[in-house]
Design a protein around this nucleic acid. Structure first.
Lengths: 335, 335
DNA sequence: CTGTTAGCGCGTTCAA
DNA sequence: TTGAACGCGCTAACAG
């Protein structure tokens, strides 16, 4: 039984010959302490391996040095990547990161937020798609910093961090144009979703900037799935003349496009170039490895963390900020 | 400013006309309370939307209703899957799950565990490969439950949960045998690692059980990578007669094997069958979709959670348990 | 079956 | 520049 009771602030004070108050202030720096006693206290803190009890501190301060990441599905590889970014920044500062996966319905989210806010998390990164205003309000009302990954900017409801879907897609299309292709098909996902809309906009913008005229018949839509990609690609490849490249709205669609190209006995990239979007793990494992646009999930996580830290130190007085991070084109062998 | 102060236990007591103690015991059930007062208290709890403050409770009890998952790389898709399993079981019980990613060096792990134990986590699921005995001891000494994913069972150091690598590989080999193949190559990863050893054992066992004699020349080793798979597969396919199937020690190796088969102008599965192990996301996206063995990560997570809950309620008196979960063969189109 | 009381370990007034 | 003393909100002896 190694039951050696952990040292408390009182032990430190006694051993250093000062009051509890002084120890507290040495550690928090919230009031001047003479260099001499400060040194002595710090030495004793070392000797006793003293660390303040987070529960006791939380009880007094209402803070917890913890940040929560609320997602709709931990299993989506985007989120762990974000979590890694949060850790990069927050772990060294002594913050704890809790990941909270919530089914996409608002009662679950209500419950999860209650739990988290009861525990006095200092910040919440909200990646749940079904979040409502009342959820935002619950978080900020509880005094926690909020960062969202989508939605409208509102000074009451924290900051927003997101990636530049339009710009990323424009880069992909530009790349394909620079490879000499002009007749470029676009296999979109659901055009009523934000990614569908923004990525299509990127496609159009790149064509315009390159002086290539937009041809409506080269754009097809479907679900963001492999099957959607197969169908969309077949439709475009049946055109006469067939497109020289298929730009896909996500990697799953691109996988399907690859299937379709193969089914027609054509070769990638010789006969037709294919690009994806997202850079899922599989992208580099396909044959040929897929040229795609990498969603900077980790960098998004880091940015969220920094915004939270800023709010924590500057107080809640400032307005809302929106940070848009560039997507990065990854050129592999499918173009 | 919706600053309405949260209701405390005292408010509940006052409104219900009982003592604070009684409220506490109604909620904890740790001593009998008359049905009448119990009902009244519960009603007031509802009305005031009272929830005990976790910090205050933690300060008193030394517990936190939180469990930590310590991993070496959040980004490895196995861990989020495990985390989801933990959530499945722990979230409904009101537990918070913290994921903690630690670089594979022991000082980082020391620091992370200190933080977690300071916060009085009730349990730790330790998936870090470099954990030492002193880390196990730190956890159990702090009174937290420990579950590990590998290593030797030791009554002092909590329970172990893992998947049956040997059985899973035996299933894969048996499946290939049942398809009529007899000359089966095995592309292993590093045979000095636990997976390398256990999976090779599964290969040998399946052959033996099927009455096929083991042929050493059909086994090659290399790294657990795509490149390793390319090289190993080429070596085996150069044999005369060539193997009818390539069983690979993980999916990355299988991707490489697929490359090699293609490079030789052969077709999968017509000329040669290929299997993987792990069932990474990419497995189903390859062409052909890969037959592989699914690591029951989520079920592992659930099991860890259950073991922790059991220890929490039964006290630390019991001995250590080891739970081995079956791997599941996923038959796709590469066989 | 119920209430009174004493801390848990810290941060923070207030006083010196 | 320093201390003494109070209380954050709760649980667990210890009475009754």
């Amino acid at each position: 039984m190694s039951k050696e009771n952990r040292a408390g602030i009182a032990d430190v004070a006694a051993r250093a010959g000062v009051s509890i108050t002084t120890v507290s202030h040495v550690l928090s720096g919230r009031r001047p302490v003479s260099d001499k006693t400060k040194a002595k206290v710090l030495r004793v803190v070392q000797e006793l391996d003293y660390r303040p009890d987070p529960s006791a501190r939380g009880l007094r301060t209402g803070r917890s040095e913890a940040v929560a990441l609320v997602v709709s599905d931990v299993t989506n590889p985007f989120y762990p990547q974000m979590a890694a970014g949060l850790q990069d920044v927050l772990q060294p500062q002594g913050f704890l990161i809790s990941i909270c996966s919530v089914r996409e319905n608002s009662e679950d989210l209500d419950a999860a937020l209650r739990h988290l806010l009861d525990r006095k998390v200092d910040g919440v990164v909200l990646a749940s798609l079904t979040a409502q205003e009342r959820h935002y309000a619950a978080i900020t009302d509880a005094g926690a910093s909020l960062v969202r990954l989508s939605g409208e900017l509102d000074p009451r409801f924290g900051d927003i961090v997101r990636a530049d879907d339009t710009g990323g897609m424009a880069d992909a299309v530009t790349h394909v144009l620079e490879r000499g292709n002009r007749r470029i098909g676009f296999v979109n996902g659901d055009p009523d979703t934000a990614p569908g809309r923004l990525r299509l906009a990127g496609y159009e913008r790149a064509l315009r900037d390159f002086g290539v005229e937009f041809d409506e018949s080269l754009v097809v839509s479907g679900p963001f799935t492999r099957a959607g990609g197969v169908e969309g690609a077949h439709a475009l490849l049946a055109l006469d003349p067939a497109p020289e490249a298929l730009v896909c709205a996500n990697d799953l669609i691109a996988v399907g496009a690859l299937d379709a190209v193969r089914e027609r006995g054509l070769s990638v990239p010789r006969d037709v170039a294919v690009t994806g979007f997202d850079d899922i793990e599989a992208a580099s494992l396909l044959s040929p490895p897929l040229t795609t646009v990498h969603n900077p999930a980790r960098e998004i996580g880091r940015t969220c963390a920094r915004l939270i830290l800023e709010r924590l130190s500057e107080g809640p007085a400032q307005g809302a900020r929106e940070v848009v991070l560039p997507q990065k084109l990854i050129v592999r062998e499918s173009t």
